[in-house]
């Protein structure tokens, strides 16, 4: 048995220790918002937050996740500024990569509340989107940053 902390809940799963976290989330926990895109950690569709850091769950053995705090798209509150900005800027097209994009953006804004374009490039460059929603991803991140500033934080 492996004990995981997913979206604030302690969950026990009985799987092979080297099973990628992605498939544990999707197949054992029915958290299907985390997507399979490439299986090699290249595209970022499987991005989740592990202790706040964006992590490629498709190449992360589940055994290494014990004692770590995992947040998936389902665990990010709907009131989260990144989710709201994504709706406001109408980022999604097919939507498949967006959970990964949103979590990567949330992590970026957590560490850099007002990121520069260069910082956005570096934090988001490895999350691929075939629909080409990148201009709106950038806008949505800037929107969150400006709201944060506006809020006097």
């Amino acid at each position: 048995m492996i004990t995981l902390d997913v979206n604030g809940k302690k969950i026990e799963v009985s799987v092979a220790a080297d099973t990628p976290l992605l498939w544990v989330l999707r197949e054992e926990l029915q958290l299907t918002g985390t997507k399979f895109g490439c299986g090699e950690g290249i595209c970022g569709a499987c991005t989740v937050l592990v202790d706040g850091d964006p992590t490629r769950s498709c190449v992360t053995p589940v055994e290494t996740m014990q004692g770590r705090k995992i947040v998936t798209i389902e665990g990010l509150p709907d009131t989260h500024p990144v989710k709201r900005a994504w709706l406001e800027q109408e980022v999604s097209q097919c939507g498949y990569c967006q959970p990964g994009q949103i979590l990567a953006a949330a992590a970026l804004l957590q560490s850099r509340p007002a990121p520069t374009d260069t910082e956005i490039d570096s934090a988001m460059g490895d999350n691929l989107c075939r629909c080409g929603t990148y201009p709106r991803i950038r806008k949505a991140i800037h929107q969150v940053a400006s709201e944060t500033k506006g809020g006097g934080k």
Binding site: L31, T32, G33, T34, K35, F36, T72, I73, E74, D78, K83, W86, L87, E90, V91, S92, G95, Y96, Q98, P99, I102
Partner: peptide, 14 residues
């Protein structure tokens, strides 16, 4: 379709 795609509940074939 945006809300479901942003909160992860949108169901794709997979």
């Amino acid at each position: 379709d945006s809300p479901a795609k942003v909160n992860g509940s949108a169901i794709f074939g997979i």
